[in-house]
């Protein structure tokens, strides 16, 4: 298959996804398309299942119904070995970075190379240094994870994720809790890597400005459904009140400020707890 034919494909297609955790329905017949080579963001109020979606795509959990096609393969149907094979073409950056705490930055990045390839140490060294250079941490290679700042931890984890040159990277809340500089750095990296390595990126986030400024396509999910889909510009101009509330960060609207409770006056006068 020529690369040209793949150009406008979707690397991941989700159709009719149904997933419930206990009584809570998280996805109800939802569908997504993640175009190859682009940065797609998944946004929505807290707890709507954005991270769950990433886990479903990577096969960590199985959906109740629906198909999740990654490069044409239906993830829920893969065997354990096939799943592990597929995961080598996928990278995931966790919110906490999830570096292995007992090894240095260098060792962390070298880890996937050592486990999955039989390359000699000299080649591994070259690759590790290249990846660290890409994220700007080549000088920090011998530091231990406990010595790194939050932003540096994420960059190191990113270097590890790209060690095996995956086709797609999923970012789980990469901007959460970062100072503006670190955020800017990460944004820059996501964009650059996507271009330079011809990756596809899926970013789960609720930092609207940052995400909107780098994403090619946005999904907004709420209550198990896709309530907004399109380019950031389109969604900014959207008519839907829920999308508006989210994009503009309004405290009250379709997602209410007050948790459902009885009438205020009755509560105060009633004297019950």
């Amino acid at each position: 298959m020529s690369d040209m034919a793949k150009q406008n494909d979707n690397i991941v297609e989700v159709r009719g996804l149904c997933f419930a955790r206990g009584d809570r329905v998280i996805f109800d017949n939802a569908s997504f398309d993640f175009p190859r080579g682009k940065i797609t963001a998944i946004m929505g109020p807290s707890g709507t299942g954005k991270t769950t979606l990433l886990r479903l795509i990577s096969g960590q959990i199985k959906p109740d119904a629906g198909r999740i096609l990654v490069n044409g393969q239906n993830v829920p149907e893969l065997t354990r070995n096939e799943l592990y094979e597929m995961r080598r073409t996928m990278g995931m950056l966790f919110q906490s970075g999830a570096l292995f705490t007992d090894r240095s930055v260098y060792e962390n990045v070298a880890f996937p190379l050592r486990e999955h390839t039989n390359l000699p140490e000299s080649m591994i060294r070259d690759i590790v240094l290249m990846k660290l250079q890409a994220v700007g941490l080549r000088g920090a290679r011998n530091m231990m994870p406990s010595e790194l700042s939050g932003g540096m931890t994420r960059r190191a984890a990113l270097a590890r994720t790209i060690a095996l040159d995956p086709d797609m990277i999923m970012y789980d809340e990469p901007f959460a809790g970062q100072d503006p500089i670190a955020m800017g750095v990460l944004m820059q990296l996501i964009k650059l890597l996507n271009q330079a390595l011809s990756l596809t990126s899926l970013v789960v986030s609720h930092d609207i400005h940052e995400t909107a400024s780098i994403a090619d396509k946005l999904y907004i999910i709420s209550e198990g459904d896709v309530i907004g889909e399109g380019t950031p510009k389109d969604l900014m101009k959207s008519e839907s009140p829920l999308v508006r509330q989210f994009m503009q960060g309004l405290p009250d609207g379709p997602v209410p400020f007050h948790y459902p409770a009885q009438d205020y006056e009755d509560d105060m006068l009633g004297g019950e707890s």
């Binding site: 592990y84 995961r87 080598r88 919110q95 906490s96 999830a98 999955h116 590890r160």
Partner: peptide, 14 residues
């Protein structure tokens, strides 16, 4: 808890 186990899975290691 720090998702190191999940990271291993995502890196294709059991």
């Amino acid at each position: 808890a720090t998702e190191q186990i999940t990271s291993l899975e995502m890196l294709g290691i059991d």
